[in-house]
């Protein structure tokens, strides 16, 4: 079966979703990510969805699940790069991305994670305030 690669970058895990997710692929990503957070004791998870053109309630829920489970494992989740059309659609659909932080791009997402997490990486935390929780 097809799988979505998870990269380890220091204390964080990075996932770049490049394909259209069908349900089983999304569910296996959820399971793999949580496993990996547990195994590596990662402090943060960054999910890049800049190549994703559709987020429906199912996928939105998957992001929420991932964030919820990671939180229990002491890791924060940031979803980055959501296309404006996707964000507008999610709001109209009425889907709350509870517990999921969002940021404009991977770099800003990294900054956000670093600021949230209690680790000593060279302080470079003039954090832009273009992230939020929807």
């Amino acid at each position: 079966m097809e799988k979505i690669p998870i990269l380890k970058m220091g204390p964080f895990l990075l996932v770049t979703i490049q394909v259209d997710l069908y349900d089983r692929l999304a569910l296996s990503l959820e399971a793999d990510l949580v496993q990996m957070v547990k195994k590596t004791a990662a402090k943060g998870v960054l999910i890049d969805i800049s190549a994703v053109s559709i987020v429906d309630s199912f996928m939105g829920r998957i992001f929420g699940n991932i964030a919820g489970m990671c939180k229990i494992l002491d890791a924060e989740t940031v979803v980055v790069g959501m296309q404006p059309a996707v964000a507008i659609t999610l709001i109209e659909l009425g889907l709350p991305l509870t517990g999921v932080h969002t940021a404009l791009d991977v770099e800003k997402g990294m900054k956000l994670l670093t600021s949230k997490v209690d680790i000593d990486i060279e302080s470079d935390d003039d954090l832009d305030d273009d992230h939020n929780t929807i």
Binding site: S57, I88, T89
Partner: peptide, 10 residues
């Protein structure tokens, strides 16, 4: 387009 496809997906 995004709205339509999302509705279709639901």
């Amino acid at each position: 387009q995004t709205k339509l496809i999302t509705a279709a997906s639901e």
